[in-house]
Design a protein around this nucleic acid. Structure first.
Lengths: 213, 213
DNA sequence: ATGCAATATTGCCTAATAGGCAAAAATTAG
DNA sequence: CTAATTTTTGCCTATTAGGCAATATTGCAT
């Protein structure tokens, strides 16, 4: 009944989720140092060895499915109308990622990532994949603009950094303004000029001019 | 003759450097997978146990002193004249980091970081420390401007991401334009508006209003 | 429905990592 | 020179990491 996805796939996804949730629960309750993969596997109802088929280490398990979550960003961008300006499209795509504030588990996970430096590295690894995908999508999107080669990567890197900063801030403010709005505000506060439009060029000086040496 | 720094300190620094270099050499030659901390320690002339007093794992050793390198960014920013506009000061500080193109060891290290995801993740961990320091310095610097709280973090995050993108690009182009120039170009291509100046706002609204859901 | 092929799980095994603790060695201070 | 720090080291055990082969599960074609 459920789907076109074969049982095998669904089971893998379920196992993966179970492991990630188990890892999150234990790490959240007892701290990352006390987290042993043996306990994760047990709670998820698989063997220790199976854990290793899914994740290389416990940190990866805690970070869990975050990478997939960010993959949505690439999708969201792809769905923006082609005529839309790149930066605007990026801002919209980012905002669409959080139509509503994320659920508790996600928040717990992100808080943990903030608290434990060891997890930060693992999170980055997952972000790295997104960076590449986003970079590629930006390149495809702006192909007709004939943007110089390094540009897509720059845009992707900056965009992700803004999303990171937004989430960080949102976590600190206990969700005072919805995440969606924080992201939008931050995205519009940074502007990215393309060499062709020169948008930023006209802008940047206004900042620097008066206060400049 | 040498310094006011006591012998003990200097020895620690030397040992740390020796370990980092040993790790780089081995990883570079035989690949990260073949890198064992035992070999690193041996090549550096210390016991395996001592390695552990310096680095938590081999990845950290390969990344080595990069964090310190980035600390210089904070210093460089602090040295910019107080009257200078923030974004301009940041751009200058970044550029000053690379008055001349970095040495071979640094390049080898960075290339390795690009090639091995595990190392990229570790580098990010070290960047996290820089992010905090930079954020704090920006906050201190722009205190008198009474910038809203999340602003320094945003600026720091974006700045670091631009530096990362610059280095990445520079590595790819085999140093065609000097790194210093790449950084400057990228920094000026992004502009960061403060709420007070509203610089970016003039750009942004065209974006969100009409096309928004 | 049944059997074959593909894929996932598990146990077994060994090497390597991680880190607490205390003894020994080196450096600094008095 | 001696005492007090601080660093290095060895010893020890728990945990991690991952190759390999046996076993179980699922998918597909007949």
């Amino acid at each position: 009944m459920s789907s076109t996805i074969p049982l095998r796939e669904r089971k893998k996804i379920a196992t993966r989720a179970a492991l990630a949730n188990a890892a999150l629960d234990i790490a959240d309750k007892h701290g990352l140092a006390q987290l042993r993969i043996e306990d994760i596997a047990e709670r998820a109802g698989v063997s220790l060895r199976t854990f290793r088929n899914y994740f290389p280490n416990k940190e990866a398990a805690v970070v869990g499915l975050l990478a997939h979550n960010s993959d949505l960003l690439v999708e969201a961008l792809r769905e923006r109308p082609a005529e839309e300006g790149l930066w605007h499209a990026l801002a919209q795509a980012c905002a669409r990622l959080y139509p509503t504030d994320p659920d508790r588990a996600w928040v717990r996970r992100m808080r943990l990532l903030k608290a434990e430096p060891a997890l930060a590295a693992e999170k980055y690894r997952s972000d790295a994949g997104v960076l590449d995908a986003l970079s590629a999508e930006i390149a495809a999107r702006s192909e007709r603009l004939a943007l110089p080669e390094p540009y897509p990567q720059l845009a992707a890197e900056v965009t992700l950094s803004i999303v990171r900063a937004s989430i960080d801030h949102w976590l600190d403010t206990a969700g005072a303004p919805p995440l969606r709005e924080v992201v939008l505000k931050f995205m519009t506060r940074i502007s990215l000029g393309t060499p062709s439009t020169g948008a930023a060029r006209s802008d940047a000086p206004t900042i620097s001019k008066d206060k400049l040496s």
